[in-house]
Write a protein that binds this DNA or RNA. Structure first.
Lengths: 344, 344
DNA sequence: TAAGTATATACAACCGATTACATATTTTTT
DNA sequence: AAAAAATATGTAATCGGTTGTATATACTTA
């Protein structure tokens, strides 16, 4: 075994006594090259173990066939499903994915944008960090007319497409479902309503209450980081209340389950004393007892749609500017399980 | 807003009336360039919004600062943790990660290797697909002396480093623990012992039985794909047995939990009738009731170690050939929870 | 001050593919 | 058989950095 020198089109050209231009054309299947020559070139390339030097190509073409992805964190069921979907689509279309995590911090997100910009990705798929409000760090992309798609945690932007689910409607449905079960004191546990997702969910929750003549109470909204641990803490808060709620609608399954388990340990019956609805439809929602009612948030599909959309746009190459489609709403669904069924 | 032309070192050189070579050297902080000139160049580069063209650089340097990752599937807790760890390390060292999924198929894996090879990744981090036995598709990498690290699903190879946990020992401990709890009819549910991981676990299981004078029975080993669904099917098999086992040691939490829940539904008490031990320490193992005894498999750490190792090797640039370290064993641990505690 | 050394900058080739344009070869038409 | 058209191939510039070598300038030293 020894390090082999890379084979170039020049090597092939020399051996066949033809010009490198012809080799290049042949390898790109240019119809202008005769079938005979093409075959010779293909065969020799194969035999010599030729592989395109993508830098040389990209340097000329000024395209990388690479898509940048920025997400808060990869290791949740939802996010890894999204990535899985994106990877599949990208791979099929000959694109590579460069994934970077913002770890929920704007600073890191800004750094990531810079890195990906310098890596000359052809476009960007982004789910915003927890505390991103100002999005001017993406301006470099808009300036260079590079397509950008936000998904899940999005922000309205004239030059970007958003891919989301109808958070308001689903939150409405979740709340209404609880009301239908006879609940009246419904708590909403969510993250700071800074990101649209949470604003919308809160709005849906409020609307459902209003539509059923239930008065909205400020202290029935609990704000935390939606972690499992936060769920446990929320359980303590609930137990300390004068009148306990009869239902809790949480913006994420992890947190919902943390809370549910803690309450169960304290002897509170789910759903009889307190009904629960989560959000995301993580696999854990079917493991916990009772199984958690939740909103199915199709991560894989979201990843597929986001990547497809970006790649389509890249192929149209500016023919259809990205702001023609502004928002894509993915189908999502309330899945009713035992944790919220008071009336069997 | 308008598409801006990219700024090159030539633009900077022209404006400052110096040569592009000096600009290039200055931007790479070459000590041969005077401080004054450097400052001028830095300032102008900043002001003009210069960014390095990585293709041009890579074309010259023949390095990409990119690491390829091939995994069976990203959307499991374990794998996404691994990736998370890799991404963190890579990002810190200025490397990009290109992740591709083999979807547990050799064919796809072969395709991925080719793609990554053509993308000129500097090295490869690989966890093998379910049915990969022959690994000759990695030969191109060895041939070009590109470093390759296997993790989790590994294969012995003279030129690759393996990063694993001590599967045999941990399986031994898990089995011994069950024996200590008084179990004697211990079932082992695992994948086809084709990949070392499963071979080792099976070996550890057998060894523990042997060391405690329990006769190994061929039909106490159940082979499936370790999915949740497979767990449910396994529950049916167990119930159909003449004498049911008093313990089950499963090679993965997902499958263990599927089986456990199905048995519970059938009225079998866990752990009193049948004790359970899983593998991986997925978050679900603390959600299910009773909580699942399992082996903590530190994915994040594994990702960190794998990426660190590869990058170290890249920086040493052949000084330390990769086969000097052949195997790295990550610490892992049996975590005892209620699902296996017969003696409280 | 002249020679010698150190420091700073410039020149130009190079990495490997792409492609507009020029030229050569073959085929078709008259 | 000559001209026209169609087809196939070649020439050379280009993308934007990097770097070995040459040259120019400043600083020591004798």
């Amino acid at each position: 075994m020894s390090t082999e020198k890379e084979v170039t089109i020049y090597d092939i050209a020399r051996k066949l006594n033809i010009s490198s231009a012809t080799v290049s054309r042949a390898l790109n299947d240019d119809p202008v090259v005769s079938k005979k020559t093409k075959q010779k070139i293909f065969d020799l390339a194969e035999q010599m173990g030729y592989r395109t030097n993508l830098f040389a190509r990209n340097l000329r073409n000024n395209r990388t066939n690479t898509i940048g992805v920025i997400i808060p964190r990869i290791n949740s069921f939802f996010m890894s499903s999204v990535i899985s979907g994106m990877e599949k689509v990208a791979n099929q279309s000959g694109y590579n994915l460069i994934i970077s995590q913002s770890s929920e911090s704007v600073e890191k997100e800004i750094k990531n944008v810079k890195t990906l910009y310098n890596s000359r990705v052809d476009g960007l798929l982004v789910s915003l960090a927890y505390d991103t409000i100002d999005t001017s760090h993406f301006d470099v992309f808009f300036k260079m007319r590079l397509p950008l798609i936000f998904f899940d945690r999005v922000v309205e932007h004239e030059h970007a497409t958003n891919i989301i689910i109808d958070n308001r409607k689903k939150a409405y449905e979740a709340t209404q479902h609880l009301i239908d079960q006879g609940c009246r004191r419904i708590l909403h546990v969510t993250a700071i309503p800074r990101q649209t997702v949470y604003v919308e969910r809160l709005a849906g929750y409020k609307q459902a209450l209003a539509d059923h003549n239930i008065k909205f109470k400020e202290d029935y909204v609990i704000i935390n980081d939606l972690s499992h641990r936060a769920g446990i803490e929320t359980a303590a808060i609930i137990q300390a209340m004068n009148t306990m709620p009869d239902a809790v609608f949480v913006s994420n399954d992890d947190c919902a389950i943390g809370c549910m388990i803690a309450l169960k340990k304290a002897g509170i019956r789910i759903p009889d004393d307190i009904a629960f609805v989560g959000f995301n439809n993580d696999p854990i929602s079917t493991i916990v007892e009772p199984n958690l009612t939740t909103i199915d948030y199709p991560g894989y599909e979201m990843g597929v749609v986001a990547a497809n959309n970006l790649i389509n746009h890249l192929h149209l190459n500016g023919v259809a500017p990205i702001h023609t489609t502004n928002t894509i709403i993915i189908r999502s669904e309330l899945i009713i399980r035992a944790s919220s069924l008071k009336r069997k």
